[in-house]
Nucleic acid binder design. Structure first.
Length: 248
DNA sequence: GTTGAGCGTT
């Protein structure tokens, strides 16, 4: 998805992609666009996101129209502090989108696993504190990825209990991300133009009464099955805090 | 609310 076209990349005929690393997780394409636009004609700015979580991975792709401009961007923006972090700008390898042909099979590495939450973070930090070598981490990380992949596949039909637990956790995370993404999208609208219109967040006026199942048909004797159809799970509605129903 | 090596999209 690009900011210039919803159907993917606009034109990769003569564009030079730059890989921007070490960017903040909160940095969006809108933040990078004006910055890179100063160095030349930016064709597209794309920030890969996680398929499941939707969060930024921490790097972006800036596509320039000309190579000299891209080189200039590298020279000028490389090491620039963006959103509190010094970004690293370098030429991208077009892995996965190369039109000339790529021989390296990085299919297994292509599907990146989501970043661990807190456990692995501490573990990685300890390792990095002692050694600056990243290659060792790559091996360890890759191994963990494959292991986790298999584990997930098995848990799908082997351990329903784990699945249930995982789903509950994921639900909580989704709710948390909903707010974050909403904010990012709002800023995306502004882009380089002044925010034209801001969608009403949540008008607290006139709460729609969702409990009005046409009382006219109540006279009919067939409302019995119909009524059950409207609320097939009376227990569920009961457990959903009847007092705070209108508040939500 | 969290993280920090890397290479991309409906």
């Amino acid at each position: 998805m690009s900011h210039f076209g919803r159907t993917g990349p606009p034109d990769i005929r003569d564009t030079f992609s730059l890989l921007v690393l070490n960017i903040s997780f909160r940095t969006t394409a809108d933040d990078l666009f004006p910055l890179f636009e100063r160095c030349g004609k930016v064709v597209d700015v794309f920030i890969p996101r996680d398929r499941r979580t939707g969060d930024s991975r921490g790097f972006a792709f800036v596509r320039y129209k000309y190579a000299d401009e891209a080189q200039k961007a590298i020279d000028r923006l490389d090491g620039r502090n963006v959103d509190g972090r010094n970004i690293m700008v370098q030429f991208a390898n077009h892995k996965g989108r190369v039109k000339e042909g790529v021989e390296k099979s990085r299919d297994r590495s292509r599907s990146r696993s989501p970043r661990p939450r807190h456990r692995d973070r501490d573990d990685r930090r300890r390792s990095r504190s002692r050694s600056r070598s990243r290659e060792r981490h790559v091996h360890d990380r890759d191994r963990d990825y494959r292991r986790r992949s298999r584990s997930r596949s098995r848990s799908m039909s082997s351990s329903p209990d784990h699945k249930s637990h995982r789903r509950a956790r994921d639900d909580v995370k989704r709710k948390s991300r909903s707010k974050s993404r909403s904010r990012s999208r709002s800023r995306s609208r502004s882009y380089h133009s002044s925010s034209p219109a801001r969608r009403s967040a949540s008008p607290p006026k006139s709460p729609p009464p969702q409990r009005s199942p046409t009382p006219e048909k109540h006279a009919n004797g067939k409302d019995s099955p119909l009524s059950r159809s409207v609320s097939p799970s009376p227990k569920r509605a009961s457990s959903r805090s009847p007092g705070s129903d209108s508040k939500e």
